Each structure stands twice: as structure tokens, then as C-alpha cells.
Amino acid sequence: MTKDLLLWDQTIFKEQEYFELDFLPENLLHRDAQMRSLKFSVSPALRGSTPLNAYCRGAPGTGKTSAVLKVFSELENATQKVVPVYINCQVDSTRYAIFAQIFKKLFGYPPPSSGISFKKLFSQIAKHLVEKKRVLIVALDDFNYLMASKEADEVLYSLLRMHEVQPGAKVGVITILSDLTLDMVRDLTPQVQSVFLPEEIAFPQYSPEEIKDILKYRVRYGFMQGVISDELIDIVTGYTADTGDLRVGINMLKRAGLNAERRASRAISKEDIEKAYEGSRYIHLNYTIRNLKKEEKVLLKCIVASGKEEMMSGELYECFKEKTDLGYTSFYEMVNRLEGLKILSLNTTGKGTRGQSRLVSLMYDPGEVEKRIDV
């Protein structure tokens, strides 16, 4: 029996970093087409020309950020004449903060914390690009935060018109969006649309087969041999496919491994998987609710406040309308979007006035949803 038990200084992990959510694997599986499109967009920069702008669009956990970071890593290894700058717009959501990060990447130190205007900051960046003959590529991740703060137009306009202020400046922009309701054409001003003109790169949700393939890749390099069976990987795959978010499965593997180690076991059990899911399943919920619009959070709160497992869509609409004054079309679109994000479940019933109505229910525990709603 003792050979099946771990000693206190032993581990079942070979490389635990393979189960970290920010880990960038050597091979980004099932994103070859997206990687080719990104490389095509940035390739002019390698020849000293202005790159094409790109717009990466897909649900959370579909590999958008990883693909961009992978291309940026390859660019940095290939040349110093191209400067890729990744911006997390949740953290840096103003034009000044974004340009401060660009300044830091170009010069190796941050701009003065006070006493420097945006105009001067902008000028120093543009001048450096021209004098050093460097091409700037800026990736704006979670771009919806800039759109919500009304900074999107100013940020894009400043970046893409830099060559007019400083002739010879070459800048490309990649936007990354997980909010599938946003329309880059509709929601940006005509002035910005006319200079942005991005190549749209779609990131569809992974199929169950693709999810399993990716998880098996992580298992192969992350765990010691024989730690988890194919049958248990199938269970993790099923849970991951239910949420549509690859990060859930990756985190489940890490938690399950730690659960096994807590038992001093050399192998993961089904119980370890089930216990891991209880924690990992909320990764998708956390990210999704954090990125919802205020009105969408109000809609969820109506369901929570009802205390019902299911609500008739008409009853839900009355609560929603009372709190937002929005019409049925907006309500209908939000319900469908929340179903697409795998937060709501919709079923039809024959009790409606026209022969059928929709029953709306939460896919998560109402208490867990309520804890994450900040309206």
C-alpha cells in the first residue's frame, strides 16, 4: 500500500505551471487558423511597414489572449525593430494609462508620475518610433472596458493618427473582445472607423473533442505518468464543455491534482474531480458577470430575487422593465446573450398566450450569482 502513497516531499506534478491560467504553452492547439491570421496582420511590421489592424472576437476562454501573446512572443524573439505592447484594459482603462504603459515598454522605465502632459507623453513615444525606426503594435485586451469608459475612440484615434503628428510613425492595433454583443463598426465613431478598418479574427468555442485534446496535452506535460485516467479526463472535458470555457478544465486539473496530494495519493480519483469542479466552475461565472452590462446584471438580479427555480419570460420581463425602462427587444437580446454565455438556461412551455412561452432559469446557484452582482 505504501507505494501508492506520496511522501511529504513528493508530488504528482511534473510541471505545475501547465495548469496555471496564464501559462502560455509551446503549442497552442486548435488555433492554427487564428494564429495564421494574426501573423498575416503583423507581418508588414517585420519589413518596417505599418501592420494591419486586427479584431479578435470570441467568448471567454477561447484562446484569444493566448494567441496574441504567443504571436507577440515570437515577434520579440525575431526582432527589436517591432515593439509589441500588451495592455489589460481592466487595469489600464484610460488613454493616459495606456500610453504610459507604451512609454514604459519603449524606454524601459515609466514616465514621471506627475508633471507630464498627455501631449508630451504622446510626442516622446512618436518621436522615439521614428528616430529608432521601430514599429509599434498595441494589443488592447478586454477592449469592452474602454468602450464602457468612453475612452475607446480617443485611444484608437490617438494611436492610429500618430503618423499625422509625427510623419514616419508606424502603429498597428489589435483589439480583443469577449463581449459578443459589441459591434466595432456600430459602436465606434465614423472618424475612428475610417482609420481602424480591422481584420476580424473569430475564435469559436472549442468542441468537446478539441477540449479533450488540449487537456490531454496539459496532462502529458503537467502530471507524472499514470496520475489521471482517460475516463476521468472525459469527465473533466464534459464539465468544461458545459461552461464553454477552457479555463474551467485547466483549473479543474490543477485542483484535482492538489486534492489527490492532500490525500497523499499518487493518482486522481473521481471524487477529486467532483470536488475540484465545485471550485473551478465559478471561474467562468466570475469572469462572465464581471464583464456584463449593468442592465444584464439587473436581469439576473430579478431572477435571484424571485426565489423561483424557473421564471416565465413574461414575468421576468415585467421585473426587468420596471427597473430599467428598456423595451422587450433589448430584454429578448439580453436573455439570448446570457444563454449563449451559459449563465441562463431557456426551455419552452405550452402555457403562453400564443401557444408557447419560455421558462428562464439560472445555470448556477442563485446565491453564488447574487454574491457576484454589484448593482
Results as ranks from 00 to 15, higher is better:
1 M>E: 15
3 K>Q: 14
8 W>D: 12
9 D>K: 06
10 Q>E: 15
11 T>I: 08
13 F>A: 14
13 F>K: 12
14 K>W: 07
17 E>K: 08
19 F>A: 02
30 H>Y: 08
30 H>M: 06
39 K>T: 08
40 F>E: 15
40 F>G: 12
41 S>D: 06
42 V>D: 00
44 P>M: 12
53 N>R: 05
53 N>V: 01
55 Y>C: 09
57 R>L: 15
57 R>C: 13
60 P>C: 06
62 T>S: 12
62 T>Q: 06
67 A>H: 10
68 V>A: 14
73 S>A: 13
73 S>R: 14
77 N>G: 15
82 V>P: 10
83 V>F: 01
92 D>F: 15
96 Y>T: 03
100 A>Q: 11
101 Q>I: 02
101 Q>S: 11
101 Q>Y: 03
101 Q>H: 08
108 G>Y: 09
111 P>Y: 05
116 I>E: 03
121 L>H: 14
121 L>V: 14
126 A>L: 04
126 A>V: 05
126 A>K: 10
129 L>D: 09
130 V>R: 14
134 R>M: 04
135 V>C: 02
135 V>W: 01
137 I>Y: 00
138 V>D: 04
140 L>S: 05
141 D>Q: 10
142 D>C: 00
142 D>N: 07
144 N>V: 07
145 Y>C: 07
155 V>M: 03
155 V>P: 04
159 L>Q: 04
159 L>M: 09
162 M>V: 14
168 G>M: 04
176 I>C: 14
180 L>S: 15
184 M>G: 07
185 V>C: 08
188 L>D: 04
189 T>M: 12
190 P>K: 01
192 V>P: 11
193 Q>V: 08
195 V>E: 00
195 V>N: 01
198 P>A: 09
205 Q>C: 05
212 K>C: 11
213 D>Q: 09
217 Y>N: 13
220 R>H: 15
221 Y>R: 14
222 G>L: 02
225 Q>P: 09
225 Q>H: 15
228 I>K: 04
231 E>H: 08
241 A>Q: 06
244 G>P: 00
247 R>F: 01
248 V>W: 09
252 M>D: 02
253 L>W: 00
260 A>G: 07
262 R>I: 13
268 I>Y: 07
269 S>I: 06
273 I>P: 02
277 Y>E: 09
279 G>P: 00
282 Y>V: 02
286 N>Q: 11
287 Y>N: 05
287 Y>V: 03
289 I>M: 10
293 K>F: 03
293 K>D: 00
296 E>I: 05
304 V>M: 13
307 G>M: 08
308 K>S: 02
314 G>C: 06
318 E>M: 04
318 E>L: 03
320 F>D: 01
326 L>T: 03
335 V>L: 10
335 V>Y: 11
338 L>H: 02
340 G>S: 12
343 I>K: 10
351 K>P: 03
352 G>L: 11
353 T>I: 12
354 R>M: 00
354 R>W: 02
359 L>C: 03
360 V>M: 03
361 S>L: 11
362 L>R: 05
365 D>V: 02
367 G>R: 01
368 E>H: 14
370 E>G: 03
371 K>W: 12
373 I>Q: 08
